[in-house]
Amino acid sequence: NKFNKEMRNAYWEIALLPNLNNQQKRAFIRSLYDDPSQSANLLAEAKKLNDAQA
């Protein structure tokens, strides 16, 4: 399933972002599970926040 693969990839990328705190990571990951079709958008948002907090 395409969404499962995208979701799994996004999950690990988000989990490993160095500048997000655990609460932020959990919120993004919860959103991934709520709507796997938004994986790419959620990952992009997480990366933006990660960069902003660098």
Rank of each mutant, 00 (worst) to 15 (best):
E45M: 13
N22T: 11
N22D: 09
N4S: 03
A52E: 12
A10F: 12
K2A: 12
M7F: 12
A44N: 10
A10I: 11
E45C: 08
N19R: 09
E13C: 14
K5E: 14
F3R: 04
A46K: 00
E45R: 15
N21D: 13
L17N: 02
K25Y: 06
N1P: 11
Q38V: 08
N22C: 04
N22R: 13
P36M: 05
F3K: 09
N9R: 15
S37R: 09
F28V: 02
Q38M: 13
K47D: 02
N50T: 01
Q38L: 08
A44H: 12
I14N: 00
A46W: 01
K47R: 14
Q53G: 06
F3V: 13
K25T: 02
Q23H: 10
S37Q: 08
K48R: 11
N4V: 04
N4T: 07
E13M: 15
S39V: 11
I14Q: 00
W12N: 14
K48W: 10
P18F: 06
A40M: 13
N19C: 03
Q23N: 08
R26T: 07
N19L: 09
N1L: 05
D35T: 13
P36Y: 06
I29L: 11
K25V: 05
W12A: 11
K2I: 13
F28D: 00
Q24H: 02
D35A: 12
E45L: 15
N22W: 12
K48Q: 05
A52C: 03
L17A: 09
D35L: 08
L42T: 08
S31A: 12
L43S: 07
L43C: 04
N4H: 11
Y11V: 14
D35S: 12
L32W: 02
L16S: 13
D35I: 10
A54Q: 14
K47H: 08
A27V: 10
Y33C: 04
R30Y: 11
K5F: 02
A10S: 05
L32T: 02
D51E: 10
A54M: 12
K48Y: 10
Q53N: 07
Q23L: 10
A10H: 03
K5R: 05
K2E: 14
R26Q: 03
E6G: 02
D35Q: 11
K48C: 02
E6Q: 10
S39L: 15
F28N: 00
A54W: 13
N22M: 04
N22A: 11
L32K: 00
P18W: 06
F28I: 03
L49N: 02
E45K: 14
F3Q: 09
Y11P: 01
Q24D: 03
Y11I: 14
Q38R: 04
S37P: 07
M7K: 02
Y33P: 01
K5A: 06
A15T: 15
Y11M: 14
D51N: 12
D34M: 14
E45P: 00
L32F: 02
